[in-house]
Each structure stands twice: as structure tokens, then as C-alpha cells.
Design a protein around this nucleic acid. Structure first.
Lengths: 338, 338
DNA sequence: ATCGACACCGCAATCGATTGCGAATTTCAC
DNA sequence: GTGAAATTCGCAATCGATTGCGGTGTCGAT
């Protein structure tokens, strides 16, 4: 219950001034060896710990990074947090987390709250609802470092970390073609998000380069991201006269849902229909058959975002926004191994 | 880039003292209506925001909760974080997160770091390695509120939120017995953790009450929590002369691993071997066959933990540690439906 | 006219640590 | 032994907000 030892306590105990204690602890040349010794010794004895709050006030620096993220309970996002935490921890930064729950209003109020607690910088991934970015522009205008990751906006002139979704989608589709698929369906996400537009583009380009005509009827909207939605789409696809022999889904959940419908329909995976997902969830290797998928390097993304922040904080004056693009990787498993 | 507006700026602009501004903003009766009006108006105009760092220093209160958690990237734990965040946000608290990565040393250094940043309280779930809790006792001794959840220790006289693991394990085992299982294997976790001891105890008691003798050889250590570990154990179980006809696993990952080995061995689930897991991961309903499992109400656990903290902070003097026990629920799916 | 009551506001200390500047003491050279 | 340089340290202001106490000023009452 005893209150913390302060620099004054040490000063009083040694009959010297707080200034001297402060300097002694920082090994300032003005202080004699003997005093330094006495101070450091007593500090250790009393288990002295500097008060970071006082330091923050003095230096206007909190050593805290504010994270805004759509959801915590999501494999990809939680790995990002983990990556951020990794770098932050090793650089002496704390990490405050707010989740927007995909709500624009909540995102705005999160921003305000973090601003009020005087974080040194922001690491932000935007909600699905967000189109107006003025609350983030406000951060930039105040000269506070801001790095956006995954869900980014080009309206902000700040550093970005993104995954090359085009590349991942291209590779996935190309792979399906290479194993002999002729009619490849695609489950797409909401196209107001750059990432989903890019995935669609990669899919289309791979088809074109593979000499396969694009067929509108094979593209299905999976906007809600629910199991039921994907199952319904799959069932519809199976009823087509000319049913697909391959599916590239923009996420693993929909892919797994598709697989369950295909299996119930007594079709074989991958022989009759091959499936490739996107995200490479932990469970993708556990389902039956194991699901091929495109990795999203979340941990690395978090690390990179934190590093970009550190880079900016080190030299705020001459900092130029940078864009880091992470290459996803196609993991081939049984669902597309012929 | 402009620095924040302070109370002094307002004071100077109105040619009054900072004290008056402070009091005016807090609607202190000593201040005349006219000054109050002028102050609040100018404050709004200049977009004044109080400096929480200065307040923290003055009040020795940071309005921040420190969370220590084994892993962020884990469905159960991330839902807990989400639950904590939910309550904390609505009570004006920030949440600082540190993950121990299941390492004792990291847990200790996390504790120190959070202590140094002067959090108002701790919400802790212990690492698998932890047996010595003196670093947490230290927190208690300093009079700082501490609430432990899920991975708790009875060596600490603090509030707890736990799931009735005994109950969950009992229900799961009882269920396996009810569908006709006679030889039920168990994958257990590290027994230095209460939760895993409780699950084992529930398993044993259900066997006893079901009239099934306990067989040591059917209990396997899954301490690492890896796929390989569980697969190896399952393979060993299948080789037994008298192989099990049911498996109750202390976690879903091991259960899913077991299912994959069983299926590869051309045995049927649940006809030959029924499987029940623990945790009810999101994916448990997606695997084939869908996995029966015991739910862990993580979100509720996080909420409760945060609420216990708030309860303690409100009246620190008269606070008595409390224990909240959440009832898990058995979700029966195809892996144990005969 | 004097005193008390009341309304209104400012001074200065406080939270803990840092730092420019000046002061005191010691050391050394000549 | 005297002056100057070097060594060592303390004063006080600062970061932003709060608060006990005391100080004005106005007013009515006696």
C-alpha cells in the first residue's frame, strides 16, 4: 500500500537536492563519483522506479501507440496485433487497443479517445463502413504519426502496409488453371474495399492469361461473410448445367462452407471441384480435405506497421510516407492437389 | 502541428487566472455565471481538451487497465479481450495489452512494465509455465486491484473469474457414456494449471458415476498443444488392443487432430470412435464431422473480469475478493451423435 | 461610518522529474 | 598566498491541471 519511492525520497535520505539525484541517476558528468554511487545504491535498495506519468508530462511523450482495428476476435487481425505488440514491446512502447467493431461512429470516437490519452502515434485499419477519413486527416494535421494497414485509404498521405491481394488472387487462380480447371467460380467480397477489388482483378487477369473466358455467372457476392450465404451460392453453382470445376473464394470461411456443400452433394474434392481459399486460417490445414489457401502474413504486417511508425517518430521532420507491400504465398493442400 | 490548447491559453486570452478557468470548467459555485459562460465558450471555440497526463500525475490515476494474457491469437483469449474492452470502454478506461506468450519470464517483465506505466489495475490470465505468483502478490501488496481469469491461482487472495471446467468436463464425459462409449480416452493439459486439473477431475467423476473404471493408459498428456503431439497420441491409442471408443479432449485443436488420424485409419466418427472437444472454436462446426465441444463463454468472462475490477476500484477499502463461476455448455454435433 | 456577510477570484503549492543557470567549494598554478 | 579554473551541486522554472486559503470588492445592516 506504500506509495512509490520518488526522487525526492532519495534526495531527502541523502540530504541532497532532487536535481542531483536526477543527474546522478542519468550519469551526468557534473556529479561526483561518490554521490553517484550513493544515489544509485540507495535507489536500488529502495527499489526506485521512475514515474513515467511525470516523464510523459514533461516530455509530452507517452511511449504509447494507439491501435484501431475492426475486430479483435479474428485470426488475421489478432495476428496483426501480435506483430505490432512484438515490435512495440521491444522498443519500449505500450500498446492501447480499441476495436471499432466495423462501425464508423465507433471508429471516430475511438480516435478521439486515443487522441485524448495522448498516444504518440496511431496504427489504424479502417472499418468496413468508413469512407470519410477526416477524423484521420485530423491526426495527420496535428503532426501525429499515423500508419494504416490492410484496410487503407489513398485519401490519406500516410505510410501504408498492404498485402498484394492482386498477386495472391492471380496465383490462386493460375494454380487452379494449372491443375486443369476450365470453369473457375469466384466468391467476391464487398467491392468498396480495395482489397476485394484487387482480388477480383487478379482472378480476372489470371483467367485471361490462361485463355479462359470470364463468365459473369460464376462470380458470387459474399458480402455478409456468413456460412449460409456461401452455402447458398455453392448450391446454386452446383445446379448449373455447366457447373464449375474449381472455386476461388476470397476468404477461407466461404471456401470451407463451399466444401461442405460439395461433399454433401457427393462430389469429390479436388477431383470434381477444386477449392482454394484466401487468408490461410489456422484451421485450413485441419479441415477435410485440407484447404489450399493464400496466406495473409498478419504478424509481419503488424511488425512492419509498427516499424514504419518507429521510423517516422525517429525523424518526424524529414519523414516521407512509404508503402510496404507484402507478398502473400499460395499454400497448396489437398483441396486442389490433383 | 500546433500544440494542444491548455487551460493557461484560455486564462491568458480572457485575462483571468488558470485556477478560475479550471473552476469554471468544472462548474464550481465560486465562479460567476458570466465568467463561466465566457470560459466554456472559448474552450469550445479553441477545441480545448484536458490533458489526461497532467491529470494522471495529479490524481495518481491513469484510467488504464493492464491486461496480461498468454496469447492474443487464440479464439478464446481474443474474445476475452473483446469482453474486457467492451466494459472498459463504456466506463472510460483504456486497455493496455501485453501477451506473455506462455512464458513465465515474459509474464514477469510484462508485470513490471505495466506497473511502471502506472495502470490502475491488472486483469491477468497466467501462462502455462507459471507456478510462482510472487510477481502478482507484489501487485496485491501494493494495493493495486488485481483480477485473475481463466488461468487462476488460489495462492492469490484476489477476485477470480473462472469457467466451471469440472462441470463442462463432466457433462462431456457423461454425454459420451450416454451414447454408449465404454472406453473413453482423455487428452489432458498441464496439471499445474487448475483448469486442466478440474477437467481431469470432471472426466474421472463422470466415469465413476457412469460405472466405468478409470484406465490410466487412456489418459494422454497434451502439454505442448501442438497438432503433432495430439496426432501421435491418437495413433498410439488406435494401436491399443483395446482401443478407445470415445475421446474427450481438453481442447478442440487436439480433438480435430485426433479426428484426422482416426479418419486416416479408416475408422468412422462417431460410430467407431466418438469425439468431444473443449472450447468450441469457431471452426468446430466447420470440420467434418462437425465437432461436439464445450463452450467457453470468453466474452462474458472478459466482461465479468472488468466488472470485478470496477467494483474493487470503486470501494478499495471494503473490497472482498469474489469468485465468479461461469457455466459452460455442451454443444452436441455430429462427432458424437449416434 | 463601520462591520459583517457574501460573491468572486488569484496566489502558490502540489503531483514527479528535468534542466539552464548560477553559486559554492575545491584544486592548482604561479 | 592570490587569482583563476575546475568540480560539484542547488535554485527555480517547467510540463498542465487542481485546490486550500486568503484577498479583494460590493452590498446591506446597524
Amino acid at each position: 500500500m506504500s506509495s512509490q519511492i520518488t526522487i525526492k525520497d532519495i534526495a531527502k535520505a541523502l540530504s541532497i537536492s532532487p536535481s542531483t539525484v536526477s543527474r546522478a541517476l542519468k550519469d551526468h558528468p557534473d556529479i561526483s563519483k561518490s554521490t553517484k554511487k550513493a544515489v544509485t545504491q540507495l535507489a536500488k535498495e529502495l527499489n526506485y522506479e521512475p514515474n513515467y506519468i511525470a516523464l510523459s508530462l514533461r516530455k509530452s511523450k507517452t511511449n504509447t501507440i494507439g491501435i484501431i482495428i475492426p475486430e479483435i476476435v479474428h485470426y488475421f487481425f489478432s495476428t496483426i496485433i501480435s506483430g505490432i505488440e512484438d515490435v512495440a514491446y521491444n522498443s519500449g512502447y505500450n500498446v492501447i487497443i480499441s476495436q471499432s467493431n466495423e462501425s464508423f461512429d465507433r471508429e471516430v470516437s475511438d480516435t478521439k479517445a486515443l487522441l485524448a490519452s495522448r498516444v504518440d502515434g496511431f496504427l489504424v485499419s479502417m472499418s468496413k463502413e468508413t469512407t470519410d477519413v477526416s477524423h484521420f486527416q485530423d491526426i495527420v494535421n496535428r503532426g501525429i504519426p499515423l500508419v494504416v494497414y490492410d484496410r487503407v485509404s489513398d485519401d490519406l498521405n500516410v505510410s501504408q502496409v498492404v498485402i498484394d491481394d492482386y498477386f495472391g488472387a492471380y496465383k490462386a487462380t493460375e494454380h487452379l488453371i494449372s491443375i486443369g480447371c476450365k470453369r473457375i467460380a469466384h466468391f467476391q467480397g464487398p467491392l468498396n474495399q480495395t482489397i476485394f477489388r484487387e482480388r477480383l482483378r487478379g482472378y480476372k487477369d489470371a483467367l485471361k492469361n490462361g485463355g479462359i473466358p470470364f463468365d459473369e455467372s460464376l462470380v458470387k457476392d459474399c458480402y455478409e461473410g456468413t456460412l449460409e450465404e456461401a452455402k447458398a451460392h455453392t448450391a446454386a453453382l452446383l445446379k448449373l448445367k455447366d457447373r464449375p470445376d474449381g472455386i476461388f473464394s476470397n476468404n477461407d470461411l466461404a471456401a470451407i462452407a463451399a466444401m461442405s456443400v460439395i461433399k454433401k452433394g457427393k462430389l469429390r474434392i479436388p477431383e470434381d471441384i477444386a477449392v482454394v481459399g484466401f487468408s490461410d486460417w489456422q484451421v485450413s490445414s485441419l479441415v477435410d480435405p485440407s484447404l489450399s489457401s493464400v496466406t495473409q502474413p498478419g504478424f509481419e504486417m503488424g511488425q512492419k506497421a509498427a516499424m514504419l511508425f518507429l521510423e517516422q517518430i525517429k525523424d518526424p521532420e524529414n519523414h516521407k510516407p512509404r508503402k510496404e507491400v507484402l507478398k502473400p504465398e499460395l499454400i497448396i493442400r489437398d483441396s486442389s492437389r490433383r
